[in-house]
Design a binder for these strands. Structure first.
Lengths: 363, 363
DNA sequence: TTGAAAGCGCTACCAT
DNA sequence: ATGGTAGCGCTTTCAA
């Protein structure tokens, strides 16, 4: 098929020594050979361009120096950022990354995990699309190194690094309260199977309860069905016309936030005076492609660091690979509130008031 | 470390047959055993949850069923889309994907290629960050299956699938001409080492030459240095004030396009009447997250299908893995022009004229 | 129809 | 300091 790769035996023959010596050399065990042989072997290896087969090494040593990353949608900026930061955290180590995209299908997720397992990956980073995944649980119970990224899996205390699912929502709601919005909604994709969505919806409901809001303020959407989404928004605006409680929308993640912005734009809504929009995730900070501050002159977000997520996940995994026994860890990452135009009703009102004052003065 | 994985010998013992029979079973060679043994072995395998080691299989068969993808920046939507579509094209096959991010460093790229090579990947998809990569050339010369994604590498006729680097620019410029823009610029990142950038700059320069435009209309930018970018834009606007030739900007890729939009927004420019903006790439169509039609009420783009790119690249690679001898192929993907608000000067002028007519009628 | 055994490329134990 | 050799888990040839 291609360049007939050199084997250790051939190199040994070339160098006129035994496989053992070559192996020792490869593994830096120079104390087992004379300075002369060391130099000689070194030059032979360099000249021949010999590269030991990782496969054979893996077979022997029972580890592959491959880390598997299994994500629900590799094209989501959240996920892409995660993979990139894992890459970076791993660069300098000898680990390579194997990725699988599960396309939001639990079957594909299990297949991917099995395939990676068969591939002898040394550990797994999983951004699951289903919190019920017994195969993953059975692996973890067998002490296979697994770290969850952001999303929980039921029935086992996994190691996990995740974005805070409560405080950011509290921050957003307090901010909206303070700005004068009186009718606050929470938009999420179908929360079935996905822990973050459930936890965030719950957090929001708890906050509403504490505020004695009795009506259900949560809306579930299919991000591909923009017509239905616009209907939801129109309903909210109609309610505003009736009761005069200024509405605000909090989004469960960045995709929802983006789609909502799109729909609002298409509806010709004006932010922040007619309605507010804010939510989780401000992607692209890593690549400096953040769009949240470009739409509607800026959309307020809580912005977790995907970079930190990747770093922490990687470090936990490497630690877990080294020591399978220690207690499982849960690391929570904060998501600081970044206030932008889309929710700043007070300063908008202030400006309006000033305008009026100016106009009356000019008369 | 974890569940002591079963080996073929153990399963053979469990089933009371030889390794050979198990192996035959695994490889679907049922003609070598009786119906009884087949069923018996099958049930034993299922019960025990035995999974053959890919590593051992790879060592024996000299292929790994792993495809390596090496990209310059995994977080770029272009790249993320590429990986996802390769994933999809490969799903159903037994191939797994190994990814490496080279962070725009040629050293990291070579390291990644070497590492994957040592890992016995069956083939490589490379989105290179440097058109001079002798290691890649030497691999290809040795008939190792490599397909280039979008970007060329010098000194060898690689298989490649790439977006058209000429016609889309012609289309954009014709469109801008037709809309009445008379001072057309091309903005690109540093084209050193990167074929697409060079080819696109050349294509643009050729078009300008054909139009007898003598001044240099190409601008190179560092996307992180937005201040310098704004200076370039201001220069262009100053020239407009002086000579009254309406300016338009064509961007070499999506990142540049996005950054330019950002800068124009910050400068408070109005599109399409003060200046036009357009360019390559309209990411996120795949995940329905396209932003190009959200900024400035829509930015005109030429929009290649990253999905097609991934599909074609994958198919070429699989073909190449099967047959290393056939002549190398170059597949060119078109990028259809999608006209949006940011360049539609004529309809803008029309609207303005209408407004005036209406006003004078109302008088 | 079944199985013994060689060997893929490497490591590591044990001789020398 | 150096090398012979067993064996990692599998496939495949050959023999029975």
């Amino acid at each position: 098929m291609c360049k007939p790769k050199l084997t250790i035996s051939e190199v040994a023959k070339l160098a006129g020594v035994s496989k053992t010596t070559i192996s020792h050399y490869l593994n830096g065990k120079f104390e087992y050979m004379s300075k002369d042989t060391k130099e000689h072997v070194g030059s032979i290896i360099k000249e021949s361009g010999y590269q030991p087969s990782k496969i054979a090494q893996s077979l022997k040593s029972q580890n592959s120096f491959i880390i598997g990353i299994i994500v629900s949608d590799i094209e989501s900026p959240f996920t892409a950022g995660l993979i990139k930061s894992v890459e970076q955290a791993l660069s300098g180590s000898n680990y390579l990354i194997m990725t699988a995209n599960t396309d939001n299908s639990i079957e594909k997720e299990i297949q991917a995990i099995e395939a990676m397992q068969a591939q002898q990956v040394d550990g797994l980073i999983v951004h699951t699309n289903n919190m019920d995944n017994d195969y993953l649980v059975s692996l973890a119970k067998a002490e296979f190194p697994i770290i969850l990224a952001d999303r929980f899996v039921n029935n086992f205390d996994f190691d996990i690094v995740h974005i805070d699912n409560v405080e950011p929502i509290q921050n957003l709601v307090s901010h909206l309260d303070h700005e004068g919005y009186e009718d606050i909604y929470f938009f999420s994709e179908n929360p079935e199977h996905i822990s973050t969505r459930q936890l965030r919806v719950n957090a929001f409901n708890n906050i509403m309860e504490a505020k004695n809001v009795t009506s259900d303020q949560v809306r579930y959407i299919d991000i591909l069905d923009t017509e239905a989404i616009k209907d939801r928004i129109v309903e909210i605006m109609e309610k505003f016309v009736k009761y005069r409680h200024k509405p605000a929308i909090v989004c469960e993640n960045g995709v929802v936030l983006f789609v909502m912005a799109k729909c609002m734009k298409e509806l010709g809504l004006s932010l922040p005076d007619e309605i507010a929009l804010c939510g989780y995730d401000d992607w692209g900070g890593f690549a400096r492609l953040g769009w949240a501050d470009m739409l509607f002159d800026g959309i307020t977000t809580v912005s977790p660091s995907v970079y930190d997520l990747g770093q922490k996940v990687t470090n936990l995994l490497l630690a877990r690979i080294k020591d399978s026994k220690s207690a499982s860890e849960e690391v929570v990452l904060q998501a600081p509130l970044i206030i932008r135009n889309s929710t700043e009703l007070r300063s908008f009102n202030l400006k309006q008031a000033q305008k009026k004052t100016n106009e009356s003065l000019n008369k």
